[in-house]
Design a protein around this nucleic acid. Structure first.
Lengths: 207, 207
DNA sequence: TAGATTGTTAATCGATTAACAATC
DNA sequence: TAGATTGTTAATCGATTAACAATC
């Protein structure tokens, strides 16, 4: 029987990585749950509890070796591998993602990009040449790609998601503000500036 | 004494808006907590519970009037207002945000954008003319802007955040994968594709 | 040794779910 | 009226926090 790790703990590991990256860039070698909590605005107990689901990474009395914990968390998240990602939509946003250095540097490489606009197909952005949407299925299956990013206008998002799922994609990062429905074995994460802004303006009084 | 509404309930209202938008675009006039739950992959009880923090929006036996609930949620989130937003960083990502139709259409208007690159300053992207970073403080204060988006490269993010806070910004949407520290009365939301991808690859087996 | 900090247990807190009276 | 669905209460579940023995 597998120990059941709460998804909410998994979801915080990338934030811990972000804080560790900060410490590493400052040349700091050792940290503590207390210090990490201060950086992240959470609690030391929560960080220790979260980490305890995955193993023991620290030393009593001393704390955590920054580089070691970084490596371990990347391993746990499978972020120590290089992942191939497909991008659908080569508009302004797709263009920005193709130029995003951070993604490739952190192991998520966009290796194929698609658009239905004949003007764009065949052009090169960053390291990839934009292909016609019709090439999506073959490309995904040949390369065995499981990660996709949707950066198409809202009206096309559902259709594209369906095509990606059909082609075998297992995880979709969706930049369109559209609720997707996918099979149980496919994950979707949404990212939408308006959702974040709405959340924050709730707390801002009208003037 | 103010009733205390959980932030987690607030954070789901934008998702409910997203689902309502979908129903509205299909011309559907009435919905139910059950149907919304199916769209969002949550539970009917949770949706009713969440909404109950803010008022009574439905009719027993019937459900919710889509347009009415949409209006009410937008009002609660202050998303029925038009908000002015400043953007810092006019690179590929800033460019994409300036061209993003959805933001303006949903009431979040980028009214000023800044960059430190002299090549960019003075050029027009979408409806705004890029200004030098040095103009940030004045522009924010003169217009009384409280919302900002950071889309600068990681090394500059902290400095920019500091400048925004100094100028009076109260809510920051941070596109750089950098943990910011800000005063208690300033909100920060992070958005970073790698964080989402790492969360998902945890569940994908290596092959 | 004294001080610090981990990993873990138990207590607390809060969120989710189930159930149902009210009522359209 | 019968069926459906809300809003709310109470029960359950799970996450966070506090506390501390272990130990570096």
């Amino acid at each position: 029987m597998t120990r059941d790790i709460p998804d909410i703990a998994v979801s915080r590991l990338p934030l811990y990585l972000r804080a560790l990256g900060h410490l590493e860039s400052n040349g700091q070698q050792i940290t503590s749950s207390k210090e990490l909590a201060a950086i992240l605005g959470s609690s030391a107990a929560q960080i220790r509890k979260d980490l305890s689901h995955f193993g023991e990474f620290g030393k009593q009395g001393t704390g955590y070796h920054v580089a070691h914990l970084n490596r371990q968390l990347r391993r746990i998240l499978h972020a120590d591998l290089v992942w191939d990602v497909v991008l659908v939509g080569a508009g302004h946003l797709g263009n920005a993602l193709l130029h995003n250095q951070g993604m490739a540097r952190r192991g998520y490489r966009i290796v194929a990009a698609f658009d239905h606009d004949p003007e764009k197909v065949g052009t090169r952005i960053g390291n990839v040449i934009i292909q016609n949407n019709q090439r999506m299925r073959d490309e995904i299956q040949q390369r065995g790609i499981r990660l996709a990013i949707i950066a198409v206008p809202p009206p096309s998002a559902r259709r594209v998601a369906h095509q990606l799922v059909e082609a075998g994609v297992k995880a979709i990062l969706n930049y369109s503000p559209i609720a997707l429905s996918v099979p149980d074995d496919v994950m979707v994460q949404y990212t939408d500036p308006v959702t974040h802004l709405q959340h924050m303006t709730y707390y801002l009084q009208d003037r």
